[in-house]
Design a protein around this nucleic acid. Structure first.
Length: 491
RNA sequence: GGGCCGUUAGCUCAGCUGGUAGAGCAGCUGACUCUUAAUCAGCGGGUCGGAGGUUCGAAUCCUCCACGGCUCACCA
């Protein structure tokens, strides 16, 4: 901890003074009866005369965020979880307790009893008849006007950020509302929420590097899950027809404005439907959430205005690649696409497969242009080891990715339920792993066994919740929508 | 991991080509019973991210390190 500075010392002194005066500076003796926002909503239309006549008694609690001393009167603002409200302390009302106000600081948490009135400037204010110190704050808060700007402190000490930056609190309130709306929508559509393991013996369901850990009693290595997919599909085998899980995934990859090592993912699965259904369903889901939370389908994001009004554009991956100078022949030949990419100064790694090269070009060239919601559909089978092949072309699968504002927001497909095909795909992945592909899928024998019992045809989708929250709160960094983003340790 | 930028008082920031550290807010003391970025008078507060180096002299120039931001690469 850093050395004690003067400001903190002064507060310690006040703390001692309070104790000497027989006051518990951390007492839990006061129960507020009303929230600031309710006071404002109920009484802001009242005239001074009406308030005078009714003498409405109130008990509120919160943090002192402003103090203005006038000698025999003190004005203050109190902030609770809902809003702030002005307090008026008068010497002739509080008598002895008025002196004790000297021991209060900005940041302290107090409970006050009083009655409502309106000031000359018409601000609804509580005239305090009694107050209780509920928590003495020992550290000074950031400045009232500029707030806290230092992003490092904002992330490391989110509690301070939340105290002084009301917009931050709003973002996380929205996050909560978004997640609630998603749950409501899915439940209205007959889904049940389930919890599957976060600790996997075989990390499956995605292409990513896992975090590993160890269980002592069993003496086995375990991995934090990179996706819940394979467990959710086991539930389809078990007979659930509509399930979802909305919780954390963990991927041992880089950290950026779009990546946090632990992040929140929604995955849902619906039996007897395919990815075509999911595209419509996704449009409905997003519309429902945006309307619930924002009351509109037109949302500002950075320099763009995103329009979520269905239907959204749908384009086949290969058609999306029909750009200048890139012919159909080029995208069916690894050498042709590599040399074409080179001419656009896109680096295609040597020894890469055609499918991965296509993916590379797409990410480089097309993804940045996908601002308005766009479903990119029909991916090469090689990139999608868990998706069902298209009946008319076994080189491709029934899969879409949803892009909004150049970001991949969702990934979905018609689920592969043929155990023999699935086994072959896993074997291919194992081969890739042997070749050094660290993110290739692992073989999961039990999952194959489950498929052998029979999984109904189904469609499944994953939606990156943090990215969705970014979109709906116009946040440019994932750290702004995660309360405690991962950072290096402080020195 | 690479590149660029940043780190000065509790907070927000100045500090130019090197000359020994400043403001506003917050704090302390005092005045003030309708203020609200209250006002007025006075005062205190700094290992200038860390360690080296250059120099008579370093917040300032150089090197290394730490942390953070943006960005590229990998990924959702």
């Amino acid at each position: 901890m850093e050395e004690i500075n003067v400001l903190i010392e002064q507060r310690y002194k006040k703390l001692e003074d309070l104790r000497k005066a027989g006051i518990d500076p951390y007492s839990n003796s006061f129960i507020p009866e009303v929230k600031a926002i309710d006071i404002k909503n109920t009484y802001s239309q009242y005239s001074q005369e009406m308030l005078e006549n009714e003498l409405i008694p109130l008990k509120v609690a919160g943090r002192i965020i402003a103090l203005r001393d006038f000698g025999k009167a003190v004005f203050s603002h109190l902030q609770d979880s809902t809003a702030k409200i002005q307090l008026y302390f008068k010497k002739d009302i509080l008598q002895d307790k008025f002196q004790l106000l000297k021991k209060l600081d900005i940041g302290d948490i107090i409970g006050v009893s009083g009655r409502l009135f309106k000031t000359k400037t018409n601000e609804l204010t509580i005239e305090v008849t009694d107050y209780h110190i509920l928590c003495k704050s020992l550290r000074p808060l950031p400045e009232k006007w500029h707030g806290l700007r230092d992003v490092e402190i904002r992330y490391r000490q989110r509690y301070v950020d939340l105290i002084v930056n009301p917009q931050v609190k709003e973002i996380f309130a929205k996050r909560s509302a978004i997640i609630k709306a998603i749950r409501d929508f899915l439940e209205q559509n007959g889904f049940i929420e389930v919890e599957t393991p976060m600790m996997h013996q075989i990390p499956g369901g995605a292409s990513a590097r896992p975090f590993s850990t160890h269980h002592n009693a069993l003496d086995i290595d375990l991995y934090l899950r990179i996706a819940p997919e394979l467990y959710l599909k086991r539930l389809l085998v078990g007979g659930y027809e509509r399930v979802f899980e909305l919780n954390k995934n963990f991927r041992n990859e880089g950290i950026s404005t779009r990546h946090n090592p632990e992040f929140t993912m929604l995955e849902f699965y619906i039996a007897y439907r395919d990815y075509e259904f999911l595209m419509n369903f996704t449009e409905e889901l997003f519309s429902y959430v945006a309307n619930k939370v924002l009351g509109t389908l037109k949302i500002p994001f950075g320099d763009h205005l995103i329009d979520l009004t269905p239907p959204w554009k749908r384009i086949r991956l290969l058609d999306a690649l029909q750009v200048e100078g890139l012919s159909k022949e080029d995208i069916s030949n690894i050498d042709a696409i590599t040399s074409w990419a080179k001419s656009k100064s896109i680096d295609i790694p040597k020894g890469i497969t055609l499918a991965k090269a296509i993916d590379e070009v797409f990410k480089e060239l097309i993804e940045p242009t996908l601002i308005q919601p766009t479903f990119v559909i029909d991916y090469p089978v090689e990139l999608s080891p868990l998706a069902k092949k298209k009946a008319e072309d076994p080189n491709f699968v029934e899969r879409f990715e949803l892009f909004i504002a150049s970001r991949e927001i969702a990934n979905a497909f018609s689920e592969l339920n043929d155990p023999i095909d699935q086994k072959e795909r896993f074997l291919k992945q194992m081969e890739a792993k042997k070749q050094g592909d660290e993110e290739a899928h692992w073989m999961d024998e039990d999952f194959i066994r489950a498929l052998e019992y029979g999984m109904p045809p189904a469609a499944g989708e994953g939606i990156g919740i943090d990215r969705l929250v970014m979109l709906l709160t116009n946040s440019q960094s994932i750290r702004d929508v995660i309360l405690f983003p991962q950072l290096k340790p402080e020195q």
